[in-house]
Amino acid sequence: METSAFLIDIGRYYLIVGVVVAAFFLGIGIDRIDPSSRGSYAFRPLLIPGICLLWPLVLYRWLALEKKSGDGEGS
């Protein structure tokens, strides 16, 4: 019984972090990563479930692209 409660808690925390990442990414990050997404707010809610499930990959790619674009601006 404790194992199932523990697994449910892990899933809950994973999704909570996913919701936070989705909020930040859709509010700040998507405009910086993909300039063509500016002004198109109707499709962003469709991305929420995917970002909540794949948030580690989204964070990794977001940080990698931010770092890459930061390196190119100085030259």
Rank of each mutant, 00 (worst) to 15 (best):
residue 57 L to A: 10
residue 68 K to V: 06
residue 32 R to W: 09
residue 7 L to P: 01
residue 31 D to Y: 12
residue 30 I to D: 00
residue 74 G to S: 10
residue 34 D to K: 11
residue 65 L to Q: 14
residue 5 A to R: 13
residue 21 V to D: 04
residue 19 V to S: 05
residue 16 I to D: 05
residue 15 L to Y: 09
residue 69 S to E: 10
residue 32 R to E: 07
residue 24 F to R: 02
residue 35 P to T: 10
residue 38 R to S: 15
residue 28 I to H: 05
residue 52 C to F: 03
residue 43 F to R: 08
residue 22 A to K: 00
residue 21 V to F: 01
residue 3 T to D: 15
residue 3 T to Y: 15
residue 63 L to D: 06
residue 62 W to H: 08
residue 15 L to V: 02
residue 49 P to F: 11
residue 24 F to L: 11
residue 2 E to S: 12
residue 40 S to F: 11
residue 12 R to C: 13
residue 56 P to L: 12
residue 4 S to V: 15
residue 24 F to W: 04
residue 16 I to P: 00
residue 30 I to H: 00
residue 7 L to D: 15
residue 21 V to W: 02
residue 44 R to V: 02
residue 4 S to A: 14
residue 45 P to R: 07
residue 11 G to L: 12
residue 13 Y to V: 14
residue 69 S to D: 10
residue 10 I to C: 13
residue 56 P to Q: 06
residue 66 E to T: 03
residue 65 L to F: 03
residue 53 L to D: 01
residue 5 A to D: 15
residue 41 Y to A: 09
residue 10 I to V: 15
residue 56 P to F: 14
residue 29 G to A: 05
residue 72 G to P: 03
residue 72 G to A: 05
residue 6 F to H: 15
residue 67 K to Q: 06
residue 4 S to P: 08
residue 70 G to N: 06
residue 19 V to F: 03
residue 68 K to T: 07
residue 32 R to L: 08
residue 50 G to M: 07
residue 72 G to K: 10
residue 11 G to Y: 08
residue 14 Y to K: 02
residue 52 C to D: 03
residue 12 R to E: 05
residue 70 G to K: 14
residue 42 A to S: 13
residue 24 F to Q: 01
residue 54 L to A: 13
residue 36 S to D: 06
residue 55 W to F: 07
residue 31 D to M: 10
residue 8 I to D: 14
residue 3 T to M: 15
residue 32 R to G: 13
residue 67 K to H: 13
residue 42 A to G: 09
residue 12 R to G: 06
residue 29 G to K: 00
residue 53 L to M: 04
residue 14 Y to T: 12
residue 62 W to N: 04
residue 37 S to K: 04
residue 2 E to N: 14
residue 55 W to I: 04
residue 42 A to I: 14
residue 10 I to A: 15
residue 25 F to Q: 01
residue 46 L to M: 11
residue 65 L to N: 05
residue 28 I to T: 07
residue 36 S to A: 15
residue 15 L to N: 02
residue 61 R to K: 05
residue 46 L to P: 06
residue 10 I to H: 09
residue 44 R to M: 08
residue 72 G to W: 04
residue 3 T to P: 00
residue 22 A to Y: 00
residue 29 G to W: 00
residue 54 L to N: 03
residue 44 R to Y: 05
residue 13 Y to H: 14
residue 75 S to C: 03
residue 65 L to S: 10
residue 53 L to V: 11
residue 51 I to V: 11
